[in-house]
Simulated assay, not measured.
Amino acid sequence: MPRNKEFDYDEKLEAARNLFWRKGYNATSMSNLEEAMQINRSSLYMTYGNKHDLFVKSLVNYIAMKDRQYNEAAEKGKDPLESIANIITSVSKSAIQDKNCLFTNAVFEMALSDTKVNQLLKQQNLKAVGVFEKLLKQAKEQGLLNSDKEPRLLAHFLVSSLVSIYNTHIVFGDQKLTQQTTEILIASIK
């Protein structure tokens, strides 16, 4: 008779996610994962698969967490442009607080060499583009957006610029510069 698992799946996945988030994929060893998750290697493999499988699950978990964060930020907006500004501000606050981003790390560390990770990142980017595009179209219809730019193209620009907020904070560690970068990005859509 197989042993029952004596740990919380999501809690251990979060521990792995946080380790990958902090160290990156390549710098994280199976021993590091065992220690951070506080489970033995056989339980890790049986429950989560190999290191790559665990990373993918961690990335999916991280993306879901960020989706919730951005949806909550957007819902607080009184109009579409304020919703966009709230999302961008939410990213800036995360960059300052967390000082890192698993999504951004995965873009630069794995997107070119790992098809599965690239697919997840592309899917999430397109989802975010869709959210921004919808809000930009609403803003145009309501006369709030005077830009002559195509909403889909502007949405792509906004999504790629979110990574620049993390990049600025990771590289320079300057809260004021990160906030100024955020303000410039928000001003670019008005």
Rank of each mutant, 00 (worst) to 15 (best):
N4R: 13
F7H: 10
L13N: 07
A15Y: 06
A16D: 02
A16P: 00
A16Y: 01
L19R: 11
R22S: 11
K23R: 14
G24D: 02
G24R: 05
N26W: 15
A27C: 02
A27P: 01
S29E: 07
S31A: 14
S31V: 09
L33C: 01
E34P: 03
E35L: 09
A36I: 09
A36S: 13
M37C: 04
R41E: 04
S43Q: 12
G49N: 15
K51M: 04
L54A: 04
K57C: 02
L59N: 07
N61C: 08
I63G: 05
R68A: 09
N71P: 01
E72A: 10
L81G: 04
I84F: 03
A85D: 00
N86S: 10
I87A: 03
I87F: 02
T89P: 00
V91N: 07
S92V: 00
K93R: 15
I96N: 00
D98Q: 13
C101Q: 02
L102H: 06
L102Y: 06
V107H: 08
F108V: 12
D114I: 14
N118L: 11
Q119S: 13
L120K: 12
N125A: 14
L126M: 14
G130C: 06
F132S: 03
E133Y: 00
E133I: 02
E133P: 00
K134W: 03
L136M: 09
G143Y: 12
P151Y: 10
L153D: 05
L153R: 05
V159Q: 08
S160Q: 15
V163D: 00
H169E: 04
G173P: 00
D174G: 03
Q175Y: 05
L177Q: 13
L177K: 10
L177D: 03
Q180Y: 11
T182Q: 05
I184D: 03
I186T: 05
I189S: 01
I189K: 01
